[in-house]
């Protein structure tokens, strides 16, 4: 009863059939955490105002996701079912705190612009979701691939948003001017409302592409 691997045998059996590389690929596109699962909306909308912020946030989340997946997976037979959520949160919070210090050490400016959202990685449902739904039931190798794929998919999605928002809202990409000086910035794009608009349009494109693929 305390061993979660013995439950959900149906789910596990279906997973065993799929090749290992699929654990990695699925996060990039088919089960993309932002565009398909619509998880982790808080950082997605809040810190995708520039491409740099989006990339940094994506990489920080990837790191936390990877490490927590590894730890949760290796401890999956040790953690009793009743306290699993508390344990996962503890593990995730640890890696988030570590990331917080590391980003400060890398660049004070970057830490300033990401602000409170680094600490908020703790409550990113993507990470807890992967720990609970995948890492706690799968081997170390698979969990690693899953975390890596999901993390890169998340980073990719954030970058898509950040690039559009920075380009229209500031006329630059990674701080490089893309338009002449007289470019009229779309201020709404840098504001939170712009995040919602951009996300909606990307979701629209993603769903249209998915539908087109399904019909053909």
């Amino acid at each position: 009863m305390a061993n979660p691997t013995k439950n959900n045998t149906g789910f596990l059996a279906s997973l065993k059939d799929s090749p290992s590389t699929d654990e990695f690929i699925k996060g990039l596109w088919r089960e993309n955490p932002v565009f398909v699962q619509v998880l982790g909306m808080c950082p997605t909308l809040a810190v995708s105002n520039t491409a740099m912020n989006a990339l940094a946030m994506g990489l920080a989340t990837t790191f936390v996701l990877l490490m927590s997946n590894l730890l949760v997976s290796s401890l999956r037979n040790f953690i009793p079912k009743q306290v699993r959520i508390a344990s996962y949160i503890l593990i995730i919070a640890t890696f988030v705190t570590m990331t917080d210090y590391m980003i400060q050490a890398i660049s004070v400016d970057l830490h300033k612009s990401l602000g409170a959202f680094i600490s908020l990685i703790v409550v990113n449902c993507l990470i807890l979701g992967r720990a609970e739904a995948f890492a706690s039931k799968n081997t170390l190798g698979r969990s690693f691939l899953d975390g890596l794929g999901m993390g890169i998919g998340f980073t990719f999605a954030l970058f898509c948003l950040g690039a559009v928002r920075e380009l229209l809202g500031n006329g630059t990409l990674f701080g490089w001017a893309f338009f002449p000086d007289t470019f009229q910035e779309w201020i709404v794009m840098i504001l939170p409302a712009g995040g919602f608009f951009t996300l909606a349009i990307w979701l629209l494109i993603f769903n249209a592409a998915k539908e087109r693929r399904a019909t053909s």
Binding site: A2, L75, I79, V83, A86, S87
Partner: peptide
């Protein structure tokens, strides 16, 4: 067991 797990982690 729970105590062990939580304290250990």
């Amino acid at each position: 067991k729970m105590l062990q797990a939580m304290v250990g982690i």
